[in-house]
Every structure is written in C-alpha cells, then in structure tokens.
Design a binder for these strands. Structure first.
Lengths: 144, 144
DNA sequence: TCGCAGATGCAACTCGTATGCAAGAAGTTC
DNA sequence: GAACTTCTTGCATACGAGTTGCATCTGCGA
C-alpha cells in the first residue's frame, strides 16, 4: 500500500498519458481524493482544495471531477438522498442506513452473485457500486 | 388481478382506516398510480391529474405523494440520474441501462440472497428496490 | 517563445423538490 | 345540517445540487 502523494502522482501520470492536461486545480483535487478515505462530495472537495487555492470556484471542481471521471481516474457514487460523493482507487459498495445515514463500506464482491444472475437472466451487466444499497443498520434494524 | 378503479378504492379505504383524509386530489393521484404500469415522476403524475383537475399545483402533488408514502400506500424509487418515480402495489427492483436509459423490472426476490448476506455479515437489513441497479442492458453490454 | 486548445472564474441559470402562508375543504360533534 | 377543528390546497418563493455561457487565462507541444 503506497502513500497518498505517490498515489496522486500515479494518477497524474495516467492523465498525462491520455493526453489530458495537468493543472494546479486538477492536481489539488487528486491530492484531496488520494489523501482521504472519507466520502467527499463536490462541495467538500472544493473546501479542501481552497485551503491551498482559495480562488478555485465550485464549478471548476465539478468540471474537473467530470473530466477526471471521463479519464477513468475518479468515480462518483450516490449515497441515498444526498449529493454525490467522489473517490479514486479501490471500488467498493456502500450500505446506507435510512435512519441514521451511516455508511458501511463493503467489498464489491458482495454483488458478484447478483451480477451473475442479472447477466444470466436479463443479459444485464451490472455496474456495481454506483448507487448505494439502502436499508437499516444493525442499530436501527426493524424490530418486527 | 383486479382492475385499477378497484385497486384505487382499496387504497382509499386503507387511508381512511388510518385516519387520514381523502381529498379529490389525493384520490386522483391514487387513480393515476393505480391505472399505470409506467414509471411516473411527480411532474408526469401532475400532468395526468391535471387532466381532471386543472388547477392542481405540482407542490400539492409532491405533498400528496409524501403523505401517501408516510401512509405506506405509495413508494418512490430512483432510476439513476433522473427524478424519482412513484408507484403503488407490487414492489420490484429496477435495472437501468446507463447507455440507453432502458428500465428492466425484475422481481424483488432477485435480492434475497444479497439481503441475507448483508444481514449475516453486517446486521444490515436491506430495503430493496429503493434505488435502481445501474449497468448495461444486453444491447449495450461492454464488448470486452 | 509562441500559439492555441483546453481550463478557469464568475454569474446566472436549470431542474427537482420543499416551504410559509392565507384561504379553503374534510370529517367529527352536536 | 351548522359549527368547528384540523388538515389540505394554491400560490409564490426558496432551496440545493449541478450546469452553462462567456471572457480571460494557462499548460504544453511545436
């Protein structure tokens, strides 16, 4: 497991390799995403980027996240009725508690069997992880 | 399988039984939902309700859908990056193609095994169907 | 070092949904 | 069936997330 700056550098290389530009903002966004294991939304990413680059506008963050997603470096996920969150690297599935909003990260392989079923029965190739699975965490599980 | 007006009447009874009021708008919303097997969003429901009740405002539709959801008669679902859709009755899961937007309805039981796993491993009780599963339909499945 | 495609800042906008308020109607009580 | 309470409605207005048009600026290949 490598450290965050190195991870960010690897992404920078990857982006250059695909002929896209590296700008200070883009690099800052990658640093933020590489440094955290939280689920950050665009607004939060903007806040963190602005620590170093105070004039960066949220719309620029959105555009960069978009661009990085096109480049296959970043992915976004929806955790229920909240703004989308963005992350780099390892792909996982989220379980979100409808009561307390708690997010549980689980390995993406939890969906393997379901993916097999949807492909076998409907020819549908699952893109797992894009949307959270909603429900109730242990603490708020229905009593019945 | 019963006809739509009867289904709507059954919902009306259910709502009365819970001490909630029946209004013309509320009844119209139920009729629209009972009559269709489409995936209707609030705006579309408003349009259909307005055929009979031209002065009904969208915000009233939202409030009614909300109220009916509290009463357990209506449920809403998210089909990807689109407005929420509403339905009454049989609960199912949606598979949504990220390329063409096509929606495939599948029995909710497709998630039984996954629900067992999340409960056994994380104490997480899945509320299936609330969010669609994204991916690619047979026609747009990745070639690789 | 130059030139230009692509990136940025800003303001203004869209789209889905929520809310505050005053007026109106459902349903209970007498 | 009139009065009354409480919920519902219409309307305007606001909200939060994300997008867009435009003029300016900058990364980076030639």
């Amino acid at each position: 497991m490598d450290r965050a700056p190195e991870r960010a550098d690897r992404f920078v290389d990857e982006i250059r390799g695909r002929g896209a530009r590296i700008t200070p903002v883009r690099r800052a966004v990658l640093n933020v995403l590489a440094e955290t294991h939280e689920h950050l939304n665009a607004e939060e990413i903007a806040g963190l980027v602005q620590a170093d680059h105070p004039d960066v506008h949220v719309s620029t963050i959105y555009r960069n996240l978009d661009a990085l997603e096109q480049l296959g470096v970043v992915e976004h996920t929806h955790l229920g009725h909240q703004p989308a969150v963005y992350h780099v690297g390892e792909h996982h599935q989220h379980l979100v508690c409808e009561v307390c909003g708690r997010v549980i990260d689980v390995p993406i392989t939890i969906l393997d069997q379901l993916a097999d079923t949807t492909r076998a029965h409907y020819g549908f190739v699952l893109h797992p992880g894009h949307f959270a699975l909603m429900g109730r965490c242990a603490e708020h599980a229905p009593s019945a």
